[in-house]
Design a protein around this nucleic acid. Structure first.
Lengths: 360, 360
DNA sequence: ATTTAGCACTCGTATGAGAAGAGTGCTAAC
DNA sequence: GTTAGCACTCTTCTCATACGAGTGCTAAAT
């Protein structure tokens, strides 16, 4: 029978650090560090050897037993070493982790990518997932900004032929999106110009989500425009702002997981890859939560995603001028170098913000 | 020692069907069919049981031995059944395969997707990869069209501020692409309008690749415009048409490979996934070859891609009004239902062409 | 009161032998 | 030309055993 603690057992354990004296902290950290390297249960002897204070394996065993009672450590089986539980990692991440500065080289590597790239937001975001995966050696992930959340700066209608118009929407954040829309009755070029002028006058400065809501109802439209609108204009407006809520999810470095010892078996890696292929779910996972802190760390099954039980997520949002634009993150095994990854994600979010600022 | 024939041995075998009498053909086909189902070496007894002409296993063994000499069959080890070689599949695909019509349901399934979708080309292409994977149960792949290959119908310059302009390029194929470009010296709105008019007059109807070439050189530009251009206009033109040659590659259904018996081991699936993550290489693989036939089938190592040795590719291009727009395809294990997949890819390429036609 | 040495015990892993089974190739008879 | 029979090969599965890593507990040492 496997001695893996249930969540309830783990939840019952004290979460405060008060109960963790210096030695327990040191042992917990040493085990986490060692487990990160080897992915194998850590024995008391290993810790005794490398621990600063010279203690015998027997003493370490006592400490480990106590950490086990708290639910911070678990044993795959009775006569095996210890591995950190999710709760153990949680305590480590929340209370013990020291922020590790990136090396100058790493910083340069990240900045270089952005400096050498154009300003297209979508490409920048896609590139970011690549950067994150390359530097973290895990999976880099990035969510494209949603036009829906932006403020309309300007729109342009370009007649394509009598039946179709290209709409170009420009948001305050620098986001530009075009789409071709069809109109039933033909509208003259002059009309389109007029409509375009009116729409710009009345709607610039509003959020695109708000505009979309308004344009759904004829009544609302009338109120905003303060005049009666022909059916064709109303339809045009409605179609112009019927934004697809699709989010683009960019994933990179998925094959980095093949190297990880805990994913050597297909049974482990298959559910993960199946999950990652459902882009909507990945988007859900990464979508900023209500009270989103600077940086968020979801450890193991905390992410509540089927297939992601053995993975952790480190994520952050990036914004331009206070406008939330998107999310970036790293997905790695639960046994992850949290301090390094947190630094990477933080720094990258900062740099991407700076970079996009130029495009405003 | 493994009895897998080398390519040279296989190449030395006769490729004509003349040498294949009815029985040999029937046995080869039966083995391929059976191996497709089971992924296990096929024994003489299995064939003897299901073969139409009532023959004993011993007779089948003789025939199998001859097919083995031709290089169409191989044995994993001395006392195992036979599996088709790549050459065997090649003979089957080229000479024996009967085109299998899709069921009405499958046709409806494919058409439905397109009927219910908007006309944005990129989304259509992305969706296509999803459709292909869902209906083939393998990996669906699609290459987005390259603006570079299109004919310019129209361009629009939208001033964003004094230093930046949004360029909207509209190609004959219905492809629309926007990009923000920066200009060093500020250009007035009136100037931009004027420039836009000139560019449209002079360049509409030319291929974008050609335009890009022209706009690289000041001299060429002068020749086309038949007048001297200010530095600002030249720069603007150059930046407008400096199209990134990036191709978007859409992959879907990669996790379908987890179900395949020959990919149960990580060692098999890892190189494949590593390959698929290199989007440029996938694009290379799928890019239409010089003399590209209606539909192309690459069997096993024919694709010459590291990691794809155990996979086959069925691909086709789709076009609108004779303009080659992009490529779609299916990647599956070498042990693939070629006749079904060929039908799927053919039909889908046809439907996507029809669908995009509407957007022209 | 804390630490440690010693030791019995548990459990996973590696190894090897043996049996079972699937399938072939060959030979001789039909 | 076809087939039955049989020896032979090779894989796979199972079982037993040995080994080793690591623990928990107890009693002694500090």
């Amino acid at each position: 029978m496997r001695r893996v603690l249930t969540l309830r057992e783990m939840g019952a354990a004290p979460l405060t650090t008060a109960v963790l004296n210096a030695r327990k902290r040191e042992v917990l950290e040493a085990i986490i560090t060692c487990y990160n390297r080897t992915a194998k249960p850590v024995s008391s002897r290993t810790i005794a050897r490398q621990c600063d204070m010279r203690l015998s394996p027997a003493t370490i065993r006592n400490t480990m037993a106590q950490l086990g009672e708290y639910g911070y450590l678990a044993q795959p089986h009775t006569s095996a070493g210890r591995i950190p539980t999710e709760l153990g990692y949680r305590v480590y991440v929340d209370n013990m982790m020291t922020t590790q500065r990136l090396t100058d080289e790493e910083c340069r590597f990240i900045r270089q990518w952005y400096d050498s790239s154009e300003l297209d937001i979508f490409e920048t975001v896609e590139q970011t997932s690549k950067i994150l995966s390359q530097i973290s050696h895990y999976i880099g992930v990035a969510l494209s900004p949603q036009l829906h959340d932006g403020i309309l700066r300007r729109l342009e209608l370009i007649p394509l032929d009598t039946q179709r118009v290209v709409v170009v929407l420009i948001a305050n954040s620098g986001l530009v999106k075009n789409q071709v829309i069809s109109i039933r009755e033909s509208v003259s070029k002059a009309d389109i110009k007029r409509i375009s002028r009116i729409l710009n006058e009345k709607l610039a400065g509003l959020s695109l989500g708000e505009i979309q809501r308004i344009s759904q109802s004829h009544k609302n439209l009338k109120a905003v425009f303060d005049q009666d609108l022909s059916d064709s204009v109303a339809t045009l407006a409605r179609n112009t702002f019927s934004l697809d809520r699709e989010i683009h999810v960019y994933l990179n470095g998925t094959s980095n997981f093949f190297g990880q010892p805990e994913f050597l078996e297909v049974e482990q890696i298959e559910p993960l890859f199946r999950f990652l292929e459902q882009k909507e779910r990945v988007a859900d996972l990464l979508s900023p939560k209500k009270e989103s802190p600077d940086i968020q760390v979801l450890i193991g099954s905390e992410n509540r995603c089927e297939g992601m039980e053995m993975c952790s997520v480190v994520q952050s949002t990036f914004s331009v001028q206070g406008d939330l634009l998107g999310t970036i993150g790293v997905i790695g095994p639960t046994r992850m170098e949290y301090s390094r990854v947190v630094s990477i994600v933080k720094f990258t979010a900062h740099v991407i913000g700076q970079h996009l600022q130029k495009a405003v």
